[in-house]
Amino acid sequence: MSFFAGIDIGSSYTKICLIDEKKKIIAEDIVSSGISFEKTSKKILRRVFKKINGNFKINDIKVFVSTGVGRYNFPFKKITKTEISCLVKGMTYYFSGKGTIIDIGAEDVKMVQINEEGEEVDFKMNRKCAAGTGAFIEEISRKLRMPLKKLNNLAEQAKKSIEINSFCTVFAGTEIIHLIREGKDIKEIARGVFESFVNRILSMVKVEGKLFLAGGAVAHNPFLLKVFEEKTGITPLVPPNPQTLVAFGAALFALENKKKIDV
């Protein structure tokens, strides 16, 4: 049996996905990226091998494709691809049709327009600013000392929302503390956080066709889907593995490249 691996070394989390020749996912894992991408890569490999069985070794993997900001830091023989190509590859495995893919990572948001054939026709990223990225919600959750799950639950219960600025993550946090002091409803504040977040993303991209969502922020904040739907009038399509989708796309590239490289 041959295996193919995609590893997505992101700024906050490293994700791995192993597939077989039939594109079946054998194992996946997610660990914090930490301060050494090299050490993290080894750690995630150890973990994922253990998940499969104790005898699994690196040589059992025919091809590695590494992606994400740390793609060049992966310490084993690999092919590198940008996370944009891997994202499109992974998403078009699950869905077809013209549309806009929005991948919300910890520190960036990628917006890719694809045509009917699933080809990338345009691509945008956020400015060097955390607003509209996962860091925004994480920062607010830290400021409120409230786990993401609870923030989601509160937002879901709110009937209306309080508008919160979407331009500066740090000051949005300060604004929220001010609103709490004023005695505003925490549920409405929580909903305002997600609306502000989605508004920021939608100000960066015109959604055309279908709306496909992925990324850690989508995986951990299910309420975002509802807000996206309310704001765009389009029901978002989300793959089963939104946080590891890019790693899965990388694994698909690994499978495609099995004959092209000498391993």
Binding site: V69, T82, I84, S85, E119, F123, M125, K128
Partner: peptide
């Protein structure tokens, strides 16, 4: 105002597409 990583990804993604 400039991010090395973001820009590198943007430039590298073009030949891939």
């Amino acid at each position: 105002c400039f991010s090395d990583e973001q820009t590198k990804t943007l430039i590298e993604s073009f030949p891939e597409r």
